[in-house]
Amino acid sequence: MLSVPLRTAASFRFAPRLIRLSTTTTTNIALQTRNISSNDVFKVSDISASADLPPLPTPPAPGLSIDDLIASGESVLEELGLWSWWKPSSYFRYALEGIHVHLDLPWWLTIVSATVALRLLLIGVPVMSQKLVAKQSMYRKEMNEFRDRIDEARKENNQLLQQQILLEQRDFLRSKDIRLGRQFLVMAANGAVFATQFFAIKKMVVVNYPGLSTGGALWFTDLTLTDPYYALPFISAATMALVTKVGIEMGTSADQMPPVMRAFMTYGLPVVIFGVSSQFATGLCVYWTASNAVSLVYAAAFKVDAIRKIFGIPPVVPIPSSANKNFAISQVIKSYKDNRSIPPSLADLRQRDASSFKKAGRGKPIT
């Protein structure tokens, strides 16, 4: 027992500490548990078969192109951004597309056919216009007298007399059932129809609807370009001048208009239309020309007594042959000279004196 080496005794001295360390390590190892294994991660068959996961979605079927939809006779208005349920122009585009597809008409003839059909459906508007023209022609003499009296009062610079004459004219029109609101209604209805068709075709030209670039005829084969010969703009302006002259769209004829308005509608408006329409695509010019042609056909048809009786339009009282028929421009010049010769009123003199006083006060002092 005493012969045991000191080294062995020292090792026995540290033995309890080693035993405690080994025990602590064993305890820590026992507490470390693994909740998932690599088998659970790589089990693809079990994950796919799980009932908690939704099934894989099926890929969508490839959509048809614009050319395929047109070839199948389907509408492409929504694909091109040309359809809105609250816009009347969208329904007119739908009608154009239907006529072109189902009747197999070229695009220029499609525009003409749709324009004629819509104008025939709205035949009540020109009928109302002709009734207004006929009723105003019955009292042309009285209306001219009121206008002459107002001119005389204006020359005398008598504003009170002008107001009295206007009140008399208003009472006279009411007694004869001539209401200017109806004339405004006719103009508003024609403007709404024109705007609907105009913007419908314009948007189709802007997006280059398939077929418009080759749907023309004669010299205007491309309906998306302007007319290089200015023929269609000239025809549109000329036919519009004739429509204004016969008064089929405005509820009044040219001879019943004031001189300034008559001069503008006879000479100024066609020039404006020619300048504006020369910048439009030929598709719009085709529509404009077709619409004016329908108006002229209406004007010619309403000259037939049988047709007027069918629609209940009274006859138009012709202008007396002894009436002084001056040109509109000469009447405008005469009216301008008469207005220049009118003496200034007291209000005008006071305004001139006030302007001169302000100008003298702001000027340099007199030395």
Rank of each mutant, 00 (worst) to 15 (best):
G73C: 08
R140M: 13
I319D: 14
K135C: 06
R20A: 13
P320Q: 11
M261G: 07
T244S: 15
Q136M: 10
P258N: 09
L296H: 02
P270S: 06
I333K: 13
L118Y: 09
L167T: 07
K364E: 09
V125M: 04
F12N: 12
I178P: 08
P59C: 03
F220K: 09
D68E: 15
S341R: 05
R147P: 03
V205H: 00
S65A: 06
P270W: 01
K155G: 07
R179Q: 10
T58P: 01
Y209Q: 05
W107M: 06
K141M: 04
R179C: 10
E79R: 01
V112Y: 03
P228C: 12
I307K: 04
V193H: 02
K131P: 03
V272W: 09
I333P: 02
A192W: 09
Y298Q: 09
N144A: 14
R352M: 10
F234A: 11
F146W: 07
R17T: 13
S321D: 13
M1N: 04
P55S: 11
L109E: 05
A189C: 12
V44M: 06
P259I: 14
S37R: 09
A189P: 00
E74S: 13
I150G: 03
F280L: 15
F14N: 12
R174H: 14
V127P: 01
A49P: 04
A49F: 04
T252N: 07
K337W: 03
L185M: 11
P88K: 00
I273A: 13
S129Q: 05
L80N: 01
A95F: 00
S213D: 06
L82G: 02
T214H: 05
A95M: 07
N190Q: 11
L105R: 03
I123K: 05
L167G: 04
D255A: 10
L223F: 00
L185I: 13
T214L: 03
L346D: 07
Q256P: 01
S175E: 15
T58E: 15
L82H: 00
W86L: 09
D177T: 10
S341N: 11
A238L: 15
T224D: 00
D305V: 04
M1I: 03
S341A: 11
P233D: 05
K203P: 01
E79T: 06
N208G: 01
L118E: 10
R13C: 06
S129T: 06
M1C: 04
R352L: 10
A217M: 09
G215D: 09
V207C: 01
V127E: 00
N339D: 08
Y287I: 03
A71T: 08
A281Q: 09
F146Y: 14
I29H: 07
